Amino acid sequence: MMHLPKDYLDDLLVRMTHHSCAIENNTITLSETVSILLYQMIPGKVSVREFYELENHRIAFNYIIESINQELTISLIHDVHSLLMDRLDHEKGHFKSHENVIVGATFPTASPKETPLLMEQWLLNLNNRIQKAKSSDDIILSICSSHIAFERIHPYKDGNGRTGRLIMMHLLLKNRVVPLVILKDQKHKYFQFLDKQDTEGFTVYATENINKDRQRYNAFLNSLSKE
């Protein structure tokens, strides 16, 4: 397991929460996110729903950190979704019961009937690929490919993007790779990777950003060693 200093985790929590929620159109700013998550101060203009989106993400993020050494299972994925959608969706922690559509996407999502089997197959394929991976590059490729497949299945009524991005974090950390933070201003590029099933492009993008975040992670480690 990677050593995860508290300051690094706080930094990762704020950035993951802000950008992942902003990709889903949450309007709370980065500085407001810091106030809410690290100092428990809620700006007056923040809506109840947007506050719960951030607060739920904090709880789900901490659950991921606590579960790093656990194998990824459908049950764990349901738990993450349930935490993310608490007080927001009555179907939290359960696969979708009705058809859903990704706004602007050119592909159909899986039907409710086929979703459970597709997710079992998805998990089996993911685990097989990771077990056969010979390098961190192979790990990143496998996780990027699985993320695209997860989002195209779109197994939940709502919260699929946030759930999928936290699952990526779990998988990367479990395999000793620094997490990928997808920035909100790169939302269009990210959605194109999903829409076109561009695993190669997404993997290149992810690798570049993970390398940048690895430098950030090392800076936190260096500052810790100097204390």
Rank of each mutant, 00 (worst) to 15 (best):
K157I: 02
F107K: 03
D158Q: 10
E151F: 04
D86V: 04
M119N: 03
I167L: 15
G104E: 07
H90D: 14
T163M: 05
P112Y: 04
Y156F: 15
L126C: 09
G93W: 00
I130Y: 03
M85F: 02
A110C: 03
H170Q: 13
L118D: 01
I148Q: 13
C144G: 13
H90T: 10
L123P: 06
H170M: 03
Y156G: 05
M85G: 09
I153H: 10
E99H: 11
G93H: 02
H154Y: 02
G161L: 04
D138A: 08
C144Q: 07
K157S: 14
E151Y: 03
L83C: 04
L117S: 06
I130W: 01
S146M: 04
G93C: 00
S135F: 07
H94P: 05
T115R: 06
R162V: 01
H98N: 11
N100H: 08
L124D: 06
M169A: 12
L171G: 12
I153G: 10
I130P: 11
M119Q: 06
S97P: 00
E151T: 01
G104A: 00
A110S: 14
T109N: 01
I130D: 02
P108Q: 01
L118K: 15
H94I: 00
R165G: 11
H90Q: 13
P108T: 00
F95P: 11
V178K: 09
N127L: 13
P155T: 01
S142A: 15
H94T: 04
L88P: 12
A110E: 04
A133T: 03
G159A: 09
G104P: 03
P108L: 02
P112K: 03
P155Y: 00
I140N: 05
E151P: 04
F95G: 11
N160Q: 07
K92L: 12
A133G: 08
W122H: 08
I167F: 10
R129I: 01
D89V: 01
E120P: 08
L126A: 06
L123M: 02
I102W: 05
A105G: 06
T163H: 02
Y156M: 03
A149H: 10
G159C: 12
L118H: 07
K132H: 09
H90Y: 10
M169G: 11
K96N: 05
E91P: 04
L141R: 06
L117M: 08
R87Y: 14
S135A: 11
N127C: 07
G93D: 02
L166C: 14
K92Y: 11
D138M: 05
S142F: 08
K92S: 15
D137Y: 13
L124H: 10
L117Y: 03
L117C: 07
R176E: 15
S136P: 08
S146I: 01
P108C: 00
G164Q: 02
H98Y: 10
L88H: 12
A105Y: 04
E91Q: 12
L172N: 11
L171C: 10
V177M: 02
V101S: 05
G93P: 03
N175I: 00
K157L: 12
M119A: 04
R129V: 01
R129F: 05
D158N: 14
H90E: 15
N100I: 01
Q121S: 12
L118M: 14
D86W: 13
L123S: 07
H98C: 13
L173E: 12
A110K: 05
G164H: 01
A149N: 13
P155W: 00
K96G: 11
H98S: 15
K132P: 03
P112M: 06
K113R: 14
R129S: 14
P116S: 05
